[in-house]
Structures are given as structure tokens and as C-alpha cells.
Simulated assay, not measured.
Amino acid sequence: MTKLYGSSLSRSARSLWALEELGVKYEHLPIAPSEARSPENLKRNPNGHVPVLEDDGVVVWESMAINLYLAEKYGKNSIWPSELAAHAGIYMWSFWAMSEVEPHLLTILHHRIMNPPEQRDEKAAQAAVEALKAPLNALEVSLKGKEYLLGKNFTIADLNVAAVMSWAPMMRLDLSSTPNVQAWLQKCLGREANKKVRGLK
């Protein structure tokens, strides 16, 4: 039995989206991030984080690692292309999202939404907005003339990057200067699998 531990209000949403996209039968155990350091979860992930995947005796943590594993195992006829070059593109964009985009989005999220008002620093948030311009421009250029990151088909690369970028609308991040990114993100987030996950705990 495939199990996914973690609330959809955390990075676990990325892996829930992958499971739904792939049509894998799974059990969802919605552990909140605040409960992730429980003795039970520390046995699954010694870092004390979610998500954690259990799949036929295999335990995987880190949302991107989970998604790459799921796509390779279950998505060969859907979101996991057969070509090795496409795999390189999937790894490239997935790691890019984590290193070039997510840290800045987290800074904005903390200083505009999550932190108590007295701990918010708008200068830090604005600096992160500025820092995002270069990677978003790179994404904009890469999407020119393409439906998705690797071409005409939606792959796990799109899911992983869009899952990271999904915080942008919540923060009302202005994407009007990158229309390719804006249209691509709306298309990805509008997929039925993602909309289903957003309705979970």
C-alpha cells in the first residue's frame, strides 16, 4: 500500500499532486508540519519533516525526490518521458525550482503573510521580489513557443516547478511582465489532479 504522510497545506501538496496525476491508489495521512517531529514520524524521516512516502517497503522523503521516484515508477506512459535527454531536463528544472525560486518565494511568504506583523520586514520581501526577476525571466524565455517546459506534453518537470510556483498567486506576485510564465502556471495549476489536492487536508 502506498502511503503519503503530510498535510496538503505543506510541501506534501506537491507529492499528493503527483500521486493524483499518476492515478496511484494511496492512503493520505495528513500530518501537519508542527507534528512532524513526533517520535513516529522521526522513525520515518530523521529530519522531522513531511512529506514522507511509503511505497511497497520503500521510504522516501523530500518532496522533489518523492515526485521523481513516483514519476519514474508509475508515469512511463504519462508524465515520465522515455528519452534520457528529457530526464536531464526534468532534473534540471526540478532542482532549479528548489534553488532559484523557492528560497525567494519563502522569504516573501514569511515577511508578508506567515510571520507575526512585528516580525515582518517589507524590505526583505521586496528584495526577494527583485531577486526573482532573473529566474522568472529565464523561465519566460524557456517557455517561448512551447506548451510546457519540455515541449508539447505536460511532464513531472512542469508539475514540480508549478508546485513551487503555486505560492505566487497567493502572494499576489505580479507576473504580468512574464506572460508565458503566467499562462503556463495557470494551465498547470488548473489541472484536475491539482485542484483535487487543494481540497484535501
Rank of each mutant, 00 (worst) to 15 (best):
I31E: 01
M98R: 00
K195R: 14
L70R: 02
A128Y: 08
E21A: 11
W93A: 03
E140C: 03
W184V: 05
V161D: 01
P51T: 08
P46V: 09
W167M: 15
K123D: 11
K25M: 07
L150D: 04
S15M: 04
D121C: 11
M92V: 00
E54L: 13
S142F: 12
V58F: 14
W96Y: 15
L84H: 11
V164I: 15
W61D: 02
H104E: 13
T155V: 09
W96L: 13
L159S: 06
Y5L: 08
P30L: 06
E21Q: 13
K3T: 12
I79F: 10
E62H: 08
E118V: 01
A162N: 05
K123I: 11
A157V: 05
I90M: 11
L42D: 03
I31Q: 02
R198L: 15
W167I: 12
V52W: 06
K133F: 04
L139Q: 00
L132H: 04
P103C: 11
S82T: 13
I113S: 10
K25F: 07
G57K: 01
E35L: 12
S63L: 03
Q182F: 09
L22A: 06
P169K: 11
N137V: 02
A193C: 03
T2G: 04
P51E: 05
V58K: 09
L136H: 07
R11S: 07
E122Q: 14
S7H: 05
Y148C: 14
A134I: 11
H49L: 15
L149W: 09
A13G: 00
L29P: 00
P39E: 10
V58Q: 11
W184R: 10
K187C: 09
Q182S: 15
P39I: 04
R191F: 10
V181C: 14
Q126C: 01
I108K: 07
L173Q: 01
S78M: 08
P51W: 07
L84N: 07
G190Q: 05
Y91T: 01
P46R: 11
V24S: 08
M170H: 13
I90Y: 07
W61K: 06
E147A: 15
E21H: 06
A86S: 13
N47M: 14
E40H: 02
K76F: 10
H87G: 03
A71F: 05
A127V: 02
E54Q: 13
A124Y: 01
P169G: 07
G199P: 01
D121V: 10
S15R: 01
L159P: 00
D174T: 03
P169Y: 12
M92W: 04
F154I: 08
A86D: 13
L175H: 02
